[in-house]
Amino acid sequence: MERAERGMMAWSLAGHDRGKLYVIAGVEEKYAWLCDGDIRPLEKPKKKKWKHIQIMKRIPVEFRDIQWEHVKNEEIRHSIKAIGLQNDRR
């Protein structure tokens, strides 16, 4: 497992959401909790095994040094869009 932190971006590698870009909202030993601010909001993150995601080793500027309790779904949607990448890597 790569070292991951809350706020990093991750691609889904397996499942019906393969190729989708998420923000890591939580970190556990075997799982990551992912959200996209739209279908998977912060209130209902997706639980995914580490082997099923690819972590991007950067944290968007808007997620550095912030309190996660104050992050909004619209900020997550905006940061995913601002990455400038296709949200589908198939």
Score class of each variant (00 low, 15 high):
Arg6Asn: 08
Trp11Leu: 10
Pro45Leu: 00
Arg3Ala: 10
Lys51Asn: 02
His70Arg: 05
Trp68Arg: 10
Lys47Gln: 11
Ile53Trp: 01
Tyr31Lys: 04
Phe63Gly: 08
Arg18Val: 08
Ile83Lys: 12
Met8Gln: 15
Gln86His: 10
Gln86Ser: 15
Phe63Cys: 14
Leu21Lys: 01
Ala25Arg: 05
Val61His: 12
His16Tyr: 12
Tyr31Glu: 05
Leu13Ile: 13
Cys35Ser: 06
Glu29Gly: 05
Arg64Ser: 06
Lys51Leu: 00
Leu21Val: 03
Ile59Gly: 08
Gln86Gly: 12
Met1Tyr: 09
Gln86Val: 12
Glu29Gln: 08
Lys57Phe: 04
Val71His: 07
Ala10Gly: 13
Leu13Cys: 13
Ile53Asn: 01
Leu42Ser: 04
Arg64Leu: 13
Glu2Met: 08
Ala4Glu: 02
Met9Ser: 06
Glu28Gln: 07
Ile39Glu: 06
Glu2Arg: 12
Arg77Asn: 09
Ile24Met: 00
Lys51Thr: 03
Gln54Pro: 00
Ala4Gln: 06
Leu13Met: 15
Cys35Leu: 05
Pro41His: 04
His78Ser: 13
Asp36His: 02
Ile55Gln: 02
His78Tyr: 12
Gln54Leu: 02
Val23Arg: 04
Asp65Asn: 14
Asn73Glu: 11
His78Phe: 08
Trp68Glu: 09
Tyr31Ser: 02
Lys20Asn: 12
Tyr31Ala: 00
Lys48Val: 11
Gln67Trp: 06
His52Gln: 03
Glu75Trp: 05
Trp50Thr: 01
Val23Thr: 14
Arg6Gln: 14
Gly15Thr: 10
Trp33Asn: 11
Pro41Val: 01
Gly15Leu: 07
Ala10Val: 12
Lys46Asn: 02
Asp38Asn: 05
Leu13Pro: 09
Asp36Ser: 03
Arg64Ala: 07
Gly7Thr: 08
Glu43Leu: 03
Glu5Arg: 12
Glu75Gln: 14
Arg40Gly: 00
Val61Asp: 14
Gly84Cys: 10
Pro60Arg: 08
Arg6Ala: 11
Lys49Gln: 04
